[in-house]
Amino acid sequence: MTNASTIAIRLPTTRPPETDGAPAFTLDAPVAGKVVGLRTDLAWRSWRLIASKWAENLHVAGATTLEIETGAQVGKEGHDDRETVNEWSEKVDFGIVGLGTCGSCTSFSVYDAVTLEEHKKPSLVVVCSEFETHARNMARFIGHSNLKVLVLPYPLEARPEDELLQIAEEYYPQALELLGVQA
């Protein structure tokens, strides 16, 4: 019922669907003998350098790495990239996906990291601090609020190589810890 001084209106908003976060996985084992997936992005050289340093560390620890690089979000190339991520997810024991340092690349990093979780593999998405909230939101929006997120300093792109390598070393133990790697 309304009276002359009021009207009834409908609100234009809706709440996002409530979802329990899909389970996240941890390795709970040493990396030796494991196949570790590293996903880089054509756009971000800083992350390519950090990932290559982590690959070296993983090799020293007795793991092998399987590295892929994505570059597109749509079209045939985008489709091929997602297919590559899917196949890669099947082959690795766990994986690290980056880099979230822009809006859409963070969204797609989260999306590709979730692909690993959907294969029941431990998964870590790497983002810069400026995009941490966005990454966590995107993970929640697509039903994977438990996705593990490693936060690197922002920005990375303008930093010199020696500084990036220092960041790689500094954050490597944290990446392993989030993934449940045992010493």
């Binding site: 309304t2 002359a4 001084s5 009021t6 009207i7 009834a8 209106i9 409908r10 609100l11 234009p12 908003t13 809706t14």
Partner: peptide, 26 residues
């Protein structure tokens, strides 16, 4: 049959405008 949330508001354009700003749906 309409099911979206319904609220009663003052029958005044300016008040509705204020409400849309306050509710962040404008």
């Amino acid at each position: 049959v309409l099911t979206s949330e319904q609220v009663e508001v003052a029958a005044d354009g300016a008040a509705l405008y204020e409400l849309s700003l306050e509710g962040r749906w404008g």
